[in-house]
């Protein structure tokens, strides 16, 4: 069974159809990249999968490990094994990163019928994790994304992903706004995360993250539908030729 299955997905936002029949199948151990120009529907796809309000599934289905996500609340999708790394991570002043991570991890544990972790144990685990990722441990004491730089916010998304150990990680433009060092740290986190039981979907504009995290499949999203799929070499073609040639190919 595939881990993530998007079938004939039609989505409306504010009464406008943005996605019109997206199909995608992601199997354990795979890395997929979804590329496309601005306005092609990339963020609509990730927001719909994560359960953002206002994204109305008109037709089709979204399945994670066999379970349909369409009727589930965002937290239930998280329990089912979904993780969305935000393009613009939200700041939550006054809530420390440590407190946030522990609340999230404990919520997952509670859902599995496990008891909450002891604070001491959790802090020890987190310290070890941030060190492994070359993050500054001070990071954990700060307010969630509060006055974080663009790079720090993206690293924080990766840290959350590693804490929650999802089955499918959707990364929305995680490479945008990153300098080379931050890009490498993020790539290291993704490579750290991936194994034969989970899957990664990278949604991106550019090919540069794909130099560090090599995808098994590349899909091109244009005008709300996937117009072309291929292997990693497709990303290089896109880098060279842009999206215009595909647009011409698909125009009715």
């Amino acid at each position: 069974m595939s881990l993530l299955e998007v079938s004939d997905l039609h989505v409306k936002v504010a009464d406008r159809e943005i996605l019109n029949g997206v199909n995608l199948e992601v199997n354990p151990g795979e890395i997929h990249a979804i590329m496309g120009p601005n306005g092609s529907g990339k963020s609509t796809l990730t927001n719909t999968i994560a359960g953002q309000e206002g994204y109305i599934v008109e037709n089709g289905d979204l399945r994670l490990n066999g379970t349909s996500l369409v009727e589930l609340e965002p937290e239930e999708r998280s329990y089912a094994g979904l993780f969305l790394a935000f393009q613009y991570p939200v700041e939550i002043p006054g809530v420390t990163n440590m407190e946030f991570l522990k609340t999230a991890v404990d919520s997952h544990r509670k859902q599995r019928g496990e008891t909450a972790l002891s604070s001491v144990e959790f802090i020890k685990d987190m310290r070890a994790l941030v060190t492994k990722l070359d993050f500054n441990p001070e990071f954990l004491k700060r307010g969630v994304n509060e006055s974080f730089s663009g790079g720090e916010k993206k690293r924080n998304e990766i840290l959350q992903m590693l804490c929650l150990e999802p089955k499918v990680a959707l990364l929305d433009e995680t490479d945008s706004g990153l300098d080379i060092d931050a890009l490498q740290v993020v790539a290291k986190g993704i490579n750290e995360f991936r194994n034969s039981n989970n899957a990664v979907v990278l949604v991106t504009h550019y090919q540069r993250l794909l130099n560090h995290v090599v995808p098994d499949y590349v899909h091109v999203l244009l005008n709300g539908t996937i117009v072309k799929s291929g292997d990693a070499s497709l990303a290089l073609d896109l880098e060279r030729k842009g999206y215009a040639w595909l647009e011409q190919d698909t125009s009715p």
Binding site: A50, G51, Q52, E53, E73, P74, E75, R77, S78, Y79, F83, L84, F86, P89, V90, I92, P93, G94, V95, E99, F100, T103, A104, S107, H108, Q111, G143, V144, Q160, L164
Partner: peptide, 28 residues
């Protein structure tokens, strides 16, 4: 609502997400 959604995508239930944000707001 964006803050609430962000927390919920991490598995924190709706009511606890609201509490957490309000507590942080006062903690400031």
């Amino acid at each position: 609502e964006q803050q609430i959604f962000y927390l919920r995508t991490r598995g924190i239930p709706d009511d606890r997400s609201r509490e957490l944000i309000l507590e942080g707001f006062l903690a400031e």
